[in-house]
C-alpha cells in the first residue's frame, strides 16, 4: 500500500503535525475536525511554520506554495470517500474513538486504509468498531510530537491486520524520511513501555520531594548520560499527570508488573495538582 491521499481526523497538536508532515511529502492531505475554530487555528499555524522554514532557507517558496495548495481543511463529512489513508488523531477516549471509526467505516470506500495515532488503546479493541473487512485494513501509526521533527512512527499491526499492509507502510515511511519501528499490539507499544524506567528509576533514586536532588539527577543524566533532558524536567514538560496516567495504564495492562509500578511521589504531585510547567509547579517551580 502506498498512500496517495491522506485525511487526518483531529486538528490538535498531533493531528496538525501529522497533516503538515504528509503535505510536506507532497501528498494531497485533508485535515478535519468538528471544532472549526481549532481547524482554522491549525491551518494558520502550519502555514506560519512553513513560512518560517522559507525564511530559514530550509524550504523554498515554491515548495511551500505547493504544500499549501495540497493541504486542505474540511468537515469530515465533506472529505472524498476515495482517500487512500485516513488517520485518526483525536482525544484519547476509547468510546469517542470507537464511535468515530464506526462512522468513518460507513463513509469511506472499502479500499481506504484506517490508522489510529493512539498511544494507549489496543488496536484490536478499536478494530471492533469497524466491519470485518475493514479490520484487515486498520492499524496503528503512532507518531511522536512534534511529528514534523521526530522521525519515529510506530507501525502497529492488530491481530487481524493484513501483515503486508504494516510491512508496506513501514517501507514507505522509511523511503520518505521517517524511522519506522514495527511493533506488536501490546501495552505502551515500544516507547511508552521501555521509557517508563527512565522516569521510574529517577523517582526511586531521590529520597523525597527535594528540588536539589531533582536538579542533580537531571544534570547527571544530561552531562554524563547525554540525554537531551533529565527525567524530572521532562516529566514537568510532558505533564506529571499525563506521565502518571501513562505509567498507570501500562502497569495495569501488563498485569501490574513490579518493574512498572507507579511511584508514590509522582502520585503525590498529581494529587497536589503539581502537573509541571502548565501549572507552574511540578518537580520544579516555574515563574
Amino acid at each position: 500500500m502506498t498512500p496517495t491521499s491522506v485525511a487526518i481526523i483531529g486538528a490538535g497538536t498531533m493531528g496538525a503535525g501529522i497533516a503538515q508532515w504528509f503535505a510536506q511529502q507532497m501528498l494531497p492531505t485533508v485535515l478535519c475536525d468538528t471544532n472549526e475554530v481549532q481547524l482554522a487555528k491549525a491551518l494558520v499555524n502550519i502555514h506560519a511554520s512553513w513560512d518560517k522554514l522559507v525564511e530559514k532557507e530550509k524550504l523554498t517558496a515554491c515548495q511551500v506554495s505547493q504544500m499549501k495548495s495540497l493541504l486542505e481543511t474540511k468537515p469530515i463529512a465533506s472529505v472524498s470517500p476515495k482517500m487512500s489513508l485516513v488517520i485518526e488523531a483525536i482525544i484519547e477516549d476509547l468510546a469517542i474513538k470507537k464511535s468515530v471509526f464506526a462512522s468513518l467505516d460507513q463513509q469511506f470506500a472499502p479500499t481506504t486504509v484506517f490508522a489510529t495515532n493512539t498511544s494507549s488503546f489496543p488496536i484490536a479493541l478499536l478494530a471492533t468498531s469497524v466491519s470485518p473487512e475493514r479490520q484487515k485494513k486498520l492499524l496503528g501509526l503512532h507518531f511522536f510530537n512534534p511529528a514534523t521533527l521526530l522521525k519515529l512512527v510506530e507501525v502497529i499491526a492488530g491481530p487481524v491486520t493484513d501483515p503486508s499492509l504494516a510491512q508496506n507502510l513501514y517501507t514507505w515511511f522509511e523511503q520518505n524520511g521517517k524511522e519506522p519501528a514495527l511493533c506488536a499490539d501490546t501495552p505502551g507499544f515500544i516507547v511508552n513501555r521501555v521509557a517508563r524506567s527512565f522516569y521510574g528509576e529517577a523517582l526511586r533514586i531521590v529520597s523525597g520531594d527535594d528540588e536539589a536532588q531533582f536538579k542533580e539527577v537531571d544534570r547527571l543524566m544530561r552531562e554524563v548520560g547525554e540525554f537531551k533532558m533529565g527525567p524530572f524536567e521532562l516529566m514537568d514538560l510532558i505533564g506529571v499527570d499525563i506521565n502518571y496516567a501513562v505509567t498507570s495504564s501500562v502497569w495495569e495492562a501488563l498485569e501490574k508488573s513490579p518493574r512498572l509500578t507507579p511511584h508514590p511521589l509522582q502520585k503525590k504531585l498529581v494529587d497536589e495538582k503539581r502537573f509541571g510547567k502548565k501549572t507552574k509547579r511540578g518537580f520544579y517551580v516555574y515563574p
Partner: peptide, 27 residues
Amino acid sequence: TIVNEAFYSWEEKVATQGDIDRAMCFG
C-alpha cells in the same frame, strides 16, 4: 533498568531489537 525493560519487551515479541533501538533513538 531501561535495558532490562527492552530485553523483557524483546522476549515478549513486542518488536525486534533493531526496531526497539530505533524507536528509543528517534521517538
